[in-house]
């Protein structure tokens, strides 16, 4: 009994030791790959940084307006952002490569899935990012235009536009990720439809008076203005 136990234990231990002995080089390999990957990624980032600096990428992005958007999103400069992104993607790739070396069954599959998913993730992030920026830009543009054109409820107009754009962005991003695309689409359609209906009802019923007053004010004033002297700002 005891002997059997000892024999089993010895065998198990030997197996573990053997396994460990088999596994340890893999681990070492992985660590080396990860460290090497960090080095390579670091060098890549440095190279990219100097290339971008040499090609005056920041000025280019300033001209295209991207810098302004990044600035507003409290992100670092575009060249810095790009270098960091490359660094992380490269290093992450090496880490995953290292993990793959471990030879853990199942993990391999996930890793290849991850690499396959990566481009779409980037695209979705991209859509997200610019979608949010566009939403804030256009909602502000609408707000300013409405204020300067003396339209009623500029904030309402502005936030409506912002909401719609954000929803649109989310649905686009989800579609890109191929996640619950139908749900999102339906949700978008529902919200958009109800919003329009709500607006129609608001203007049609609740806002009847408001709408009338507004129209009166617009055209009534226009007629009155003609009798006033034009004040040229220049």
């Amino acid at each position: 009994m005891w002997e059997k136990f000892v024999a089993e234990s010895t065998r198990a231990t030997r197996e573990i030791v053997t396994d460990a002995a088999q596994f340890l080089p893999h681990l070492l390999e992985m660590l080396i790959i990860v460290v090497l990957g960090w080095l390579i990624a670091y060098v890549l980032r440095a190279i990219l940084r100097s290339i971008l600096r040499l090609t005056k990428f920041d000025r280019f992005s300033e001209h295209t307006g991207a810098s302004r958007l990044l600035n507003q999103a409290a992100l670092p400069s575009s060249s810095e952002l790009l270098s960091r992104l490359v660094f992380w993607v490269a290093w992450l790739g090496f880490i995953l490569l290292g993990v793959g070396v471990l030879g853990i069954v199942g993990l391999q599959q996930h890793i290849s899935n991850f690499f396959g998913f990566l481009p779409r993730l980037f695209t979705a992030l991209f859509v997200f990012f610019f979608g949010f920026l566009a939403a804030s830009f256009f909602s502000r543009a609408a707000l300013l235009a409405a204020v300067n054109a003396d339209l009623p409820s500029p904030r309402l107009i502005s936030s409506t536009i912002r909401t719609l754009l954000i929803i649109l962005t989310i649905s686009m991003a989800f579609e890109e990720l191929e996640l619950a695309e139908h749900t999102v689409l339906v949700a978008f359609a529902l919200i958009f439809g109800s919003l329009m209906l709500g607006l129609a009802l608001a203007f049609g019923l609740g806002g009847q008076d408001l709408a009338r007053r507004y129209l009166e004010r617009r055209f009534g004033r226009a007629r009155k203005e003609e009798r006033e002297d034009e004040l040229s700002p220049l």
Binding site: R140, L143, L144, A146, V147, N148, D150, P154, R155
Partner: peptide, 12 residues
């Protein structure tokens, strides 16, 4: 228009 502008444009 000034009053409305200051109020409505606060975030800007």
């Amino acid at each position: 228009m000034f009053q409305v502008g200051v109020a409505e444009l606060e975030p800007v």
